[in-house]
């Protein structure tokens, strides 16, 4: 042992690399950007040239008209999220990035399903929609359009349920997400 006040020698063996390279889960990145022309192209271009895949992407205004919010989901099993966010931070128009913790986040997606439905099937389809708290927004002789809001899992579950009826078209917005509690996302 050294004299009092002498620093302990630090052993190199105990040093560990902060290597959170692959987290193995889906990440929702909430990104505030300056509302300037070309911002989305810069983000999309960055992902393309670094070989990162975007699973979903939504863009919209915020309460401040100078600032837009981009919400995108990335697969942390395929990409080093740390590197993705650091590269995003280098874009001058990117103001803030949050990698949202799933437990502290409310995430929602809107989907529209156009399903084949003649008279016989329609009742059953309506029941399923109700269970999922979906809304029928259009009915014609041969098809109905159902609106569903929820998490990605719920929408995928609904898709599996209605597919056997004859899924003509499906449209999904991609997730938006907001942090729980009083603090800002």
């Amino acid at each position: 042992m050294g004299e009092p006040g002498t620093k302990e020698p630090l052993s190199l063996e105990e040093l560990e690399a902060s290597s959170n390279l692959r987290t193995g889960r889906k990440h929702v990145l909430s990104i505030l950007v300056e509302n300037k022309s070309g911002v989305l192209t810069r983000i999309a271009g960055l992902f393309a040239r670094r070989g990162f895949n975007i699973d979903t992407l939504t863009v919209g205004p915020t309460e401040d008209e100078q600032i837009s919010r981009v919400t995108l989901t990335v697969d942390g099993a395929l990409h080093p999220i740390d590197q993705v966010t650091k590269q995003l931070h280098k874009l001058i128009n990117v103001l803030k990035i949050r990698d949202l913790e799933p437990a502290d986040t409310v995430a929602r997606e809107l989907a529209l399903f156009k399903v084949a439905a003649d008279g016989v099937q329609r009742g059953e389809l309506m029941q399923i929609a109700e269970i999922f708290r979906g809304k029928v927004v259009d009915v014609t002789k041969r098809a109905v359009i159902i609106e569903v809001t929820g998490t990605t899992d719920k929408i995928e579950a609904f898709e599996n349920m209605v597919r056997p009826f004859g899924l003509i078209e499906m449209m999904r917005t991609g997730e938006i997400a907001i942090s729980r509690g009083r603090s800002e996302t």
Binding site: L12, L15, E16, A17, S18, S19, L21, D82, Q83, K86, Q87, H89, K90
Partner: peptide, 22 residues
């Protein structure tokens, strides 16, 4: 080796070689 990595660009740190002391 263990690595100390000093760089003004955070994205360079642990990009190719994971740093022990970034």
């Amino acid at each position: 080796a263990k690595f100390i990595h000093i760089d003004v660009d955070p994205a360079e740190i642990s990009k190719n070689v994971p740093a022990h002391i970034p």
